[in-house]
């Protein structure tokens, strides 16, 4: 279990929600539910965060903001969609301005149903997200491990060798005509 899963930092964004789920997310930090005893801190900076808690059925204007926050977070990262609106659009799924759930904008790892979502369910979701975080971290480490790098280097060398062994394409006979530009010529391009 790596250090990140022992103390995941969360970033929270309200993606066009009614605020009900947002105040329950903030209530998780207060003394009654207190996720800070698990090392969780609510940060405002996407580059410091591991878990993205998003609420609300996203509207057209908010898609860009949600995608930007998601792209600014560093790998490995986990997205938790909190509340009925974030999972599927909820009661607003047929509104004209709503795209119908967060998974239509960014990939989601854990869905938490409820209206408004319960703080206990949020704690369950963060714990489940930590499992996904560990798997992603293991996959990243494998991708960046020494063996993987060696394999990638060997594959690249093979590709270069294959490209070098093929006969060169005949270069078009351009040098003679191109270098002999007659600066004294009266011809103009238009004529």
């Amino acid at each position: 279990m790596s250090g990140t899963s022992k103390s995941p930092w969360i970033i929270h964004y309200d993606g066009s929600s009614c605020n009900g789920c947002d105040i329950e997310v903030l209530a998780c930090l207060t003394p009654m539910y207190d996720v800070e005893r698990f090392g969780v801190i609510n940060t405002g900076n996407p580059k410091h965060a591991d878990v993205f808690l998003i609420t609300g059925a996203v509207n057209e204007r908010n898609i860009g903001v949600v995608k930007q926050i998601y792209s600014q977070m560093l790998e490995p990262k986990v997205v938790v969609a909190c509340g009925a609106c974030a999972c599927s659009g909820g009661i607003f799924h047929d509104c004209y301005n709503v795209i119908g759930g967060v998974d239509k904008a960014i990939p989601v790892d854990v869905y938490v149903p409820g209206c408004a979502v319960r703080p206990e369910a949020l704690i369950d979701a963060v714990v489940a997200g930590l499992g996904a975080l560990e798997e992603k971290r293991a996959a990243l480490e494998l991708a960046s491990s020494y063996e993987a790098k060696e394999l990638a280097k060997a594959a690249e060398q093979e590709r270069l060798a294959e490209a070098a062994s093929q006969p060169l394409l005949e270069e078009p006979a351009k040098t003679e005509e191109q270098t002999d530009i007659d600066i004294n010529a009266d011809e103009e391009p238009g004529e």
Binding site: D14, S17, R61, N62, F92, V98
Partner: peptide, 9 residues
């Protein structure tokens, strides 16, 4: 950023 158009519902 939060307009959902719920009056039309």
């Amino acid at each position: 950023f939060i307009h959902r158009g719920l009056e039309r519902l």
